[in-house]
Design a protein around this nucleic acid. Sequence first.
DNA 1: CGCCTGGTTAAGACTGTGTAAACAGCCGCC
DNA 2: GGCGGCTGTTTACACAGTCTTAACCAGGCG
Lengths: 229, 229
Amino acid sequence: MSDMEKMLLLVSADHTATGLLGKLLEMNGYRTCVVTTVASALSEIRARPPVLILLDRQLLVKEGGRRDQFPAAIPIIVLQPFDKSCGQDECLTELEAGFDLVFCSPHSRELLAHIRAILRRQQMPAAAPSVLRAQGLAMDTARHEVTVGGTLVELTPKEFRILHQFLLSPGVVLSRQELLNRVWGEDYALEEHALDVHIHSLRQKIEADPSKPRFVVTIRGIGYKLQAS
Amino acid sequence: MSDMEKMLLLVSADHTATGLLGKLLEMNGYRTCVVTTVASALSEIRARPPVLILLDRQLLVKEGGRRDQFPAAIPIIVLQPFDKSCGQDECLTELEAGFDLVFCSPHSRELLAHIRAILRRQQMPAAAPSVLRAQGLAMDTARHEVTVGGTLVELTPKEFRILHQFLLSPGVVLSRQELLNRVWGEDYALEEHALDVHIHSLRQKIEADPSKPRFVVTIRGIGYKLQAS
DNA sequence: CGCCTGGTTAAGACTGTGTAAACAGCCGCC
DNA sequence: GGCGGCTGTTTACACAGTCTTAACCAGGCG
């Protein structure tokens, strides 16, 4: 995340453009490196991989560069000089060829916003905790782990799915039929009482006092709900 | 990636637009889900997280939606009806607010290309370092070597690729199908049990006590995960 | 007091996973 | 080209954990 690592590679033969752009980027906290040919870009990438590449479309066309010459892991924005005509089809071709964006606007602030947006997305996967919480309960669906007040509890598949349904709509009463449909699937005719048994074993595992449930409470004549204070 | 997982969420109150767009997207191999308010979008996201959200700008403005209401991990494209004027500044505001793209063009093919580009970037292994570590495990992808607690172990290609997938997302449960897709390739119909056998031989090589695995643990009914402390 | 709903328990059936062993393909080597 | 070893796949079977069924129990409510 440090600015030191935010190295951008500018690939263009247009010295006026790269000069301006480079200054702009460095004022916004990026480090830049300028090369003037696709070939030198490739060796620079090997030496010091940038986090993003800005690639002049003219150069790309002239040298016949293809997306798969560059590492797929590094996003690439193709720059189309705004004073040149930018045919829809041509820009589309590059986008479909695997480049991340074809930029053909004179607004440098817009380019900056796009760079930030792409880098933001790039660096995102680090934090993607898919965890549902209610009271002292926490369910991490990605890791398939459930904790009650911080301590891990082991649930069977059915118990997990039942609790999952409760956590998706905490405080809402789910009828027996609704739960059966969601956990066992539609149109599965099943001894309705089976649900009770699973609720029971679920309570044994997550409730402090299973005879006086605080999480999964019974709504007599209707079904169950997850108590949401 | 199986089609099941490529779920897009369409958030718009414009039924004609969503109808057309939905049809277009489904013709291109995506599954779509349409909701008409930001509030219903949020609950839908909790229930079945989509891989990408298409959000009508009119709705966003009207309901005063903010980017941080939505999970940061899910990319969002803001749709600006092309017949409305799209002021540069307004579009910029959203881009800088954390949205991934503001799309204001009538060309549906262009939208498709952008969706693909963003998902491509999203699913990219994000410039994985050449040495992956977890617990006492270390995998040098460049040298194609794996060490457990410092000692080198010899893995077959399949075992290596399976372990590689685990190390790319330690702690996350990978379903059998997901692993089959990633290691064997998309939609390759294969006796699912083959995976178990490879997991078995992998455990024989990396686990101290293969009958009580500490690294690759089974999540019954789902798949496997790499235990991350 | 008796009916009905839900709780509890235990036993059998079943499914998913582990394990071993046989089979098939590939590649290098003699 | 034939042979042998290595990898990957398939098959078969055992076993453990999980689910379902059923029977019985407890308590609320008419």
